[in-house]
Amino acid sequence: MFFWEPEVNTLLTQSINLFATGLLVLAFAMIAQRRILTLIHLFTLQGASLVAATLVVAYLTDQHHLYYSAAITFVLKVVLIPILLHRLIDRLNVRWDVETLFNIPTTMLIGIVLVIFAFNLATPIAGLSASIARGTLGIALASVLLSFLMMIVRAKAVPQVIGFLSMENGLFFAATAATSGMPMLVELGIAFDVLVGILILGVFMFQIREQFDSLDIRHLEKLKEE
């Protein structure tokens, strides 16, 4: 052990907080963002900060399976899914689409309320957890709620899918932060689920477009029985 190790460990613990905050800010930025292309960039960044946070937790708690899950997250959320999404928006030709949505400042204000709510909810729970990054539970919860909010206020299908994926990021982070990760099998299963989900949603979106000539999900309202 080197003499500076305790100091480095403190810094690393603090850096988990930093990455968590990054996750939250990115979730917030997604709410404020109109362009689909930028949304994908933001999502990629979010994945990257998630990988970084997982690696730090893995190093600090010395749990090897977290390294694997960080690797899986990297492959999936920083490489594979963004590529898929890029190809998707190219094929759908919505790369430069600017989406009109519900008044952005109002959405962000609701976002702040959600953040306060989530922080408050997590404070007592965090006290129970013994994990090194227990303060971040509130942040993870807030990111999940923000992504949920994003799915609600978006009018197009692709941003909704991104919202869904970013929600999964938040959940994954909550699992890492609060319980030092889920069992490997569960994680693999979720990863596989997300991948398959993307593929299915992609196919689904093509179908929506074929049917309605647009990706606006308001068209789906016509599908109900009269």
Binding site: T21, I112, F119, T123, I139
Partner: peptide
């Protein structure tokens, strides 16, 4: 949010 994060994390 920065203020809120400070209140939550104490840092």
């Amino acid at each position: 949010i920065a203020l809120l994060v400070h209140v939550l994390l104490g840092a």
